[in-house]
Write a protein that binds this DNA or RNA. Structure first.
Lengths: 360, 360
DNA sequence: CCGATCCATGTAACCGGTTACATTATCGGG
DNA sequence: CCCGATAATGTAACCGGTTACATGGATCGG
């Protein structure tokens, strides 16, 4: 039996051209071709033109793997976010992409789905891709992960969570304080029985920060905390809805609910409407994030605006700087802002007001 | 003056370990270490354990650039989408990520922002990263781009647009037909004066498909087309709002509007409410995409459900298959579905109905 | 007990760029 | 017209993995 050649060659047209082929055809050395890309000023215009012609003719695209390996610069930065279904991450991601692109970097995005093991795996993968820097979401992960980052010399920065005291580089706002602001707003409107709907604190230190901010604010204002009014759900509309459903079946339902993110808040809003309750007359709702959609709900959502885009931009800038400078002491705290719209009102206004929505 | 060494070395702890270091310390050859990763069954368990110990101790992470170069397999697939702010792309992206991950691939996402040059640039970049396959949005791009893909042997698949007749591989639904369905629904409710709000057809062949579907359906039903009722805007809530504002200031406003995406539809909805109009009593609105949020608007949005997640999954699967098989004839058409909710009603019902929302 | 076979491992060429350094053109001044 | 400086280009050793092939040891049937 005749053995076929081991590696079946693709048709020539589909095998990308190499720098040596280009160099040969242009009658120059590979170094010159390389310089045409990386240091165009150092090659004489006439020669540059000659090389460019060959490049264009062959649709030559320089191999980033080889280039990255040789130069020890992948021109890649990594980003890990927990989910794509919450559009708040779209804002920060967009901002990061912008900064990165301007600096000549490509962004590798990993989605962890709130699963710590998945996140650790993604970090490993991205280190393997030799990203020159990494933007992480949240600060909580096993020490071995941080150790791996350190040993592989990958600079990183944490977002969405202030990593106070830990010495970890971070660019974020204060989840704790922001949540407290929301509670303070509700208290100032006379609410005393306030519920909380938030993400799963076991796998989400941002949600935990907000929860703790909520609890701290409650006790600061001398309000009792009813554990049956503390609900944790996944980041989905339906989950927010289900949580609110539960909240309303409580023998003593709350007069206001703080939702630690807008997605759940909008689900909650919809559940109230379904139950024939008027927001804000019967019950007040505060969200968190200030998604674009928050201005378009009925009623418009009172929420905590989070500097997602700014945070992304500054995190990326800080990361690029730390990549160049080699030092990692980044600590940036960004402000949040309570946006009061229509979903919150004085406690005890009762139902039947003119602007109360009828159940459909 | 004393010259410093050219390349300042990072501290040893931050220089990632190499396979040769690991091999040496474990007392084996680099081939064995490599096999521990890529072909674990072929190395004796005792040896594997010995190597793994060294790997763990050093937090060794194999260099994907070098590996990709040597094996000619980057284990990367590329995805280009126009924007992150429309969450419909999150669904398809998520699905793609899932399939890719299961097959051992990482997804490189590029955002084109609806700018053709930007898209061409991203495609070039991704080819350069030696993605083994590429998932594109829409079919329209200069021939040189397709030529570049061909010459570099990068398989690809087009999504969000059926590339009929062009012979280009695609997995999509039919924008044209889906839009026509929406119009048919409105016509069946007695509407004759129907407006269109859609994306910018000049840079978006999906929007163009929907627009053409709209026009075709209108003339099929013998309805006149008023150019002043054909509006194109960017994909933003505010843009949909502004478009509807314009629509309503028309001397003869439409009784129904088809919005070629939900984002703009929700903006339009909000503008109607602002103007004291009742949807659907005064004016009907149909969206397109069926974003999760469409169930939570007031009124709930009638819209065309698009198989985003399915499409992403099938596109990724088809791409992986075509990467292996080396052939590129993919043509998959997925169904869409009109989801009738509350934002559409019979024409001429007039205002003042019980469930009409008062302006706030 | 020997050669064929198979399994586990080692050797080293190679992937396609980059870049330090060497070499050759170019140019201005004496 | 020659010399030294400078600009432009070439040479070839890497970068850190992979893998075809070689090698050596164990197994086994005859």
């Amino acid at each position: 039996m005749v053995t076929a050649p081991r590696r079946t060659r693709r048709p020539a047209s589909a095998r990308p051209a190499t720098i040596r082929e280009v160099a040969k055809e242009a009658g120059v050395s590979t170094a010159t071709v390389s310089r045409v890309f990386n240091d165009p000023e150092t090659v004489k215009p006439s020669m540059r033109a000659r090389v460019m012609k060959v490049i264009d003719r062959h649709h030559y695209v320089s191999d980033g793997l080889a280039g990255g390996l040789a130069s020890r610069r992948s021109r890649l930065i990594g980003l890990i976010i927990p989910t794509m279904t919450n559009s708040i991450y779209a804002s920060s991601t967009q901002a990061i992409q912008n900064v990165a692109q301007k600096a000549g970097y490509t962004v590798l995005v990993g989605i962890s789905d709130f699963i710590p093991e998945q996140e650790a795996h993604l970090i490993h993968q991205l280190i393997g891709r030799r990203v020159e820097g990494l933007i992480l979401t949240g600060a909580e992960r096993p020490p071995r992960v941080y150790e791996k980052l350190r040993r592989n010399g990958t600079p990183f920065v944490i977002t969405w969570k202030l990593a106070r005291g830990s010495g970890l580089p971070c660019v974020s706002f204060d989840n704790h304080r922001a949540a407290a602001t929301a509670v303070a707003h509700l208290v100032s409107l006379g609410h005393r029985r306030i519920g909380l709907i938030c993400g799963e604190t076991a796998v989400n230190d941002r949600a935990r920060g907000r929860r703790e901010g909520f609890l701290a604010a409650m006790s600061k204002h001398g309000l009792p905390i009813d554990p049956s009014l503390l609900l944790e759900r996944k980041f989905e509309f339906v989950e927010g809805r289900a949580a609110m459903h539960r909240m309303l079946r409580n023998p003593r339902p709350p007069t206001a609910v703080f939702c630690a993110n807008d997605i759940q808040a909008i689900g909650a809003l919809s559940e109230c409407r379904e139950q024939g309750l008027c927001v804000p007359a019967d019950i007040s709702i505060v969200g968190f994030d200030d998604l674009p959609i928050a201005q378009y709900t009925t009623p418009r959502l009172t929420t905590v605006r989070v500097p997602a885009s700014d945070m992304g931009r500054r995190a990326a800038e800080a990361l690029l700087h730390s990549m160049r400078a080699g030092e990692q002491d980044i600590y940036v705290e960004l402000p949040t802002e309570l946006i009061v719209r229509e979903s919150t009102a004085r406690e005890g206004m009762g139902s039947g007001l003119a602007f109360c929505l009828p159940a459909v």
